[in-house]
Amino acid sequence: MSAPPKWAMLIDTSKCVGCLACVSACQNQNELPVTEYFNRVEEQEFGRFPNFNRRFVPIQCQHCDNPPCVDVCPTGASYKRADGIVAVDTQRCIGCKYCILSCPYNARNISRENGYVHKCGFCLDLIEKHIQPACVATCPTGVRVFGDLNDPNSELSRLIAIKKPVHIGKDLNTKPSIYYIIG
């Protein structure tokens, strides 16, 4: 048996067409109400006509290895799992929102209905059954690659080795588990 998994994702922004299917898929997967999202797609424009370009950047919880949200949580509700996932024990959460403000990626949400904080959990229910996270499966252009960093043969590990992706917000020393190709 090889090393236990360390889940991670590679997001290649050069392929993203900003369709928001990942946003919609995630809402369903996590049974979120109409106004709540675990992920988003930011848009940037460059240049003036006709030398113009734009770019879409999908963002969600980065499952930081050095997660400020876990550090600041006063109740221990936010925690880091051995497989790399940063999760919220919703029962323990008091809804102080400190973690929301501590997250440089704005990846956390209040559940209006329940009052606790929730966020992307890397679709744990799915990956435990070897099914791709909802946002990955639905993406038509293959922006997102999900996999096990500890498995050198995973497509993820291979791509990371070849493409030399970066972390976003890397000055913040959060050590994210999501890698980006910003193109």
Partner: peptide, 29 residues
């Protein structure tokens, strides 16, 4: 004010049953 600002104010007691040494809020409480 702090308690009212909590989304789950009735869970306030949890602040006083944990000490999270890295959490300024916990120490502050």
């Amino acid at each position: 004010g702090l308690i009212l600002d909590l989304e789950r104010p009735w869970q306030f007691w949890r602040l006083m049953t944990t000490i999270e040494l890295k959490s300024v809020m916990s120490l502050g409480a």
